[in-house]
Every structure is written in C-alpha cells, then in structure tokens.
Design a protein around this nucleic acid. Sequence first.
DNA 1: ACTATTCGTAAGCGTGTACCTACAATATGG
DNA 2: CCATATTGTAGGTACACGCTTACGAATAGT
Lengths: 197, 197
Amino acid sequence: MPRPSQAHEKRKKLLPIVARAFAELGYRRATTAELARRCEVRENILYRLWPNKKAMFVASIDYVYEQAAGTWQGILSEPDDHNSAAVRLLEHEAEHYGESGLQRIIFAGLSETDEPEIREALRKMYGRFHRFIREQVVAHRNGTEHSALPDETVAAWAIIGLGNLANIGRELGLFTNRGRKRIFGDAGRLLLDGQGG
Amino acid sequence: MPRPSQAHEKRKKLLPIVARAFAELGYRRATTAELARRCEVRENILYRLWPNKKAMFVASIDYVYEQAAGTWQGILSEPDDHNSAAVRLLEHEAEHYGESGLQRIIFAGLSETDEPEIREALRKMYGRFHRFIREQVVAHRNGTEHSALPDETVAAWAIIGLGNLANIGRELGLFTNRGRKRIFGDAGRLLLDGQGG
DNA sequence: ACTATTCGTAAGCGTGTACCTACAATATGG
DNA sequence: CCATATTGTAGGTACACGCTTACGAATAGT
C-alpha cells in the first residue's frame, strides 16, 4: 500500500507562516514564490496543499479567527477576578489588540472583496466574531435593566468597530498605547453597560 | 514663450477617475494601464501628471477626505432643524455612509502601509477626520456636564470606528440598511451625549 | 512666421507573476 | 523486496506589470 499522506499535518505546519506573509505583505505582494521561500519549500508543494493562491489566503483568514478564538477561550477559562468575562476580554484587548499583526490580513482581504470566496471567508469571520462578542455582552448585562443603551447586537458591532480602529491606529501610529487603552476602556465599557467615563 | 501648461486642470479632471479605480480595484490591480484606459489617455500622460503610481494613489487618498469634507460643509451650512450639527452629521452618515464607495481606498492603503508616503497620507487623513469630528462633539456637548461619558477625543475616535465598520459592513453585506442606521444612530448617539437606546 | 514647450501616440525593456510539467528520491504496507 | 503512492527539485511558459524613450503634431507668446 502507498505511503500515507501527511498533507494535513503539513498544511497545519505551514499555515501560520503563510498567514503571516499575507499579513505583512498584503495579497498581491505575497507572491507564491515569497510564500514558498518563507516556508522553506518550493512553490510546487504549496500547490499540492492548496489548489491555488486564493485558497491559501482563505485558509489564512480562517486562521486569524482561530487564533483569536483560542486566546479568548484562554481568558474565559481563567479564574474570575470579580469581573465579568466581557470586562476581562475588553481589558485584554485594550492591552494587546492587534499585537500579533495578523489582523492585517483583513485589510488585505477587504481589497479583494470582488473575489466571492474571499468575501465569503471575511463575512463568515465577522459573523463568528460578532456572535461571540454578542454572547459576552448578553451574559454581562444579564437581567439588569439598561434602557438607555443600544441593544446587544448593536453594541457588539460597535465593539468590533473599536477593534478595527485600534488595529488601524496601531498600523498608522495614530495613538499611543495609553490612548488605545482609553478607547477600548472608556468607549468599550460605555457600550457594554453604560459605565463610560 | 511656451505654451502654458494645463497640467493642474488635467490633474483635477482625472483624479476622480483615478481615485475611483483605486477604490474599485485596490492598489495592485489598479494597473497603470487600467488607470489610463479609464481616463481615456495613454499611461504616458498619467506619468506626466504624477511622478509614479504611488503619487497617484496618495493624491487619491487626499481626494477621499476632500470629498467627505465637502459634503459635511454642505450639511453644516444647512439651516438648523433644532438639532445640533453633530446630530445632523450623524444622521446623514447613518443614511449615506460609504455610499460612494470611495472609502475602499483606505483598505487598499492599509495593505500598503510599509510605503512611508502612503502611510503618511493615511495618517494625515485620519488626523483631519478626527479633528473635524472632535470639534463637532465639543460643540454639541458644550458646557453641559457629561461625567459618565468618554472625553471628546475618545468619543471622536470611537465614532470614526463606527464609520469604518459601517464601511466594512457595506462591503461584505454584513447588515441591512436599517442595521447600519441603528449602529450609527444608537451607538453614535450614545458616544455623543449618552442618549443611547 | 518663429520657436519653445506641451501634448498625444506608439513601442518596448526588464522584471515578476501564477501556475505547470517532468522526473528522481523516498518511504510505506503487503 | 516490491509496487505504489507521496515527496522534493529543477526548469519553464505565457503573460502582465511599472515605467521609459522616441517622435511628430499642436499651440501659444513674441
């Protein structure tokens, strides 16, 4: 019988490298030759793991979500420090959001939204992010009356908006670490439960 | 004496076309050949108006701000309908934000932030946006006490974050028109003066 | 009319690109 | 050990890219 395929393992091993290349270079400049160079393989074998460059990119988008989800699960399972999970997540993002630089892939993808597969991958990713955050907002507010606040769906989207902006800010050097923390802290908290300033 | 140069006028005439091409295609796919085709001139002429492709892109970024600023000035100079300028701007953006599609240029630019000139152009643009919005927030809140709200700087950045997200949402079809309006209306208003839900 | 300058057209140079083919080396289960 | 499949290597194709050069035609002030 034939030699067993290790394609799955190899994909898992190379995907982080590929994703980082897309994040640093954007879609077009991350040429297949450059991807192969960074992976220390020939272009050829990338094409055996994925059918084409677009598929490598879509896989990288999924990887971004999985990375974030992993980090967040870690925070959720930490012992409580008399703060809700939502508040702890907000604090963590205020401190570390965009640190990995991986989210730059999203900007690259947004320049390629006329490719249906890429658009779909981004849609799915944002959908998953939103669902996760919304759940945390609901859990945080549970029961308590917040008549003057936007509902959980809106609040979750707005918090995602803060995240995007934090990313852009980090990319362009728009604000200091302290500034970014205040944006997440003050505006994020305001959206969460009205404790704004 | 020589024939007087009409470069300035020509630049002004072609820039909207160039900017739209960058918005629709992104930086790399908006090839100089394609830009020339849309402008109905030869590539050559573009290279007489701008030194290189990067300069065409930077000019397009500036154009995005000028377009928005023009629209906003129009709204500010409208007669008052017993709403503050800030509220009227928020309502206008809730209705029309991202309609032109020009803001896609920003995503394209964010994938090219390792080019210092492009990074600088984006920085400048965000800085101008923030200054403008912050002024409106200050004017809206003037004097009244809002102890539980984020300060004007933070609020203005957060509102910009809402705008970015609205753009992404429009691009990916993440939410309906009504949804987008609620994000601008509810979250935006909350950041502005605490009248959230 | 002269002339300096701009304008429009055409062609092409060097490089980079996604993707493919052909083939030898390797490793596995029977 | 052998047949079968998977690996790694080398090379190449067809095309698109940013940018440049060359040159004749048009146009304005003097």
